[in-house]
Amino acid sequence: MGHPRSSVVLKLVMAVTGLLLVAFLYVHMIGNLKIFFGQETFDHYAHWLRTIGTPLLPNDWYLWIQRFVLTVAAIAHIVIATVLARRARRARPVRYAHRPKVQASYAARTMRWGGVIILLFVIYHILDLTTGTLNPNGAPGQPYANVVADFDPSRWYVTLFYTLSIVAVGFHLRHGIWSSFRTLGQQTMRGQRIGKAVALVLSVVLVVGYLSVPFAVLTGLVD
């Protein structure tokens, strides 16, 4: 069993990496919503992302640095979650038979399977809208057209998978933000209530924000 102090450090790192990933999700969501301002605005925004840091950095370097940092944070988050879960199982050899066990098991299953779905979604998302490999349009420099082609009504199964994945992100986020609040010191009852409320609001906003794009394309609001 790991030393209690090392577990605290791991939980702190997990909370920080999780918050970093959440911050990226929100910034990315805000960028996605630019699609409602029209093709020119959305395409210009996508082009601007490739020029961040110039002339200090060559084109696309900022995006590659961002991808590297996010990848390291995601891997660290997953590895630490696995280590802490194993330590928790070894520390509780006796199975609980009451409701707390049910709640804990539900949270653990939600985080575990939600994490798997999110990982698969990230891989698909990269192959779809980053490399264009799985996108029906897949044209470099045409992000607006790629998004519209991706969520065309005939590709309802893509929208369904996207929806399930984003909802999984929402559940994962809700539990993760609340856990981060506790890890970062909000241990009082009032602090936990605030943490739960903040986690719920942030999760709902994120889910609605991300799902607004595919459903806007599906219903013809964006075409």
Rank of each mutant, 00 (worst) to 15 (best):
Q186P: 00
L173F: 07
I194F: 11
H175L: 13
T183Y: 02
G185T: 11
L164W: 02
T183H: 05
L164A: 14
G176L: 00
Q192V: 10
T163K: 10
S165R: 10
V169P: 01
G170K: 04
R190K: 12
L184Q: 13
L184K: 07
Q187L: 13
V167F: 11
H175G: 12
F161C: 09
V167H: 03
G176K: 05
R174L: 14
V167Y: 04
Q192T: 07
R193E: 06
G170N: 08
S179K: 12
F161A: 15
G195Y: 05
T163N: 03
T163S: 15
W178Q: 12
Y162E: 15
G191F: 04
F161W: 08
R190Q: 14
G185E: 13
I166G: 04
T188I: 09
L184I: 08
I194H: 07
R193D: 10
F171L: 15
M189V: 15
I166W: 10
A197W: 09
I177H: 00
V167Q: 11
T183N: 07
G195I: 04
R193Y: 12
F171H: 09
Q186W: 13
T183R: 07
Q192P: 00
S165M: 03
A197Y: 01
G170I: 04
G195W: 03
V167R: 04
R190W: 00
R174E: 02
R193M: 10
H172F: 13
K196V: 08
L184D: 01
H175I: 07
R193G: 06
Y162V: 05
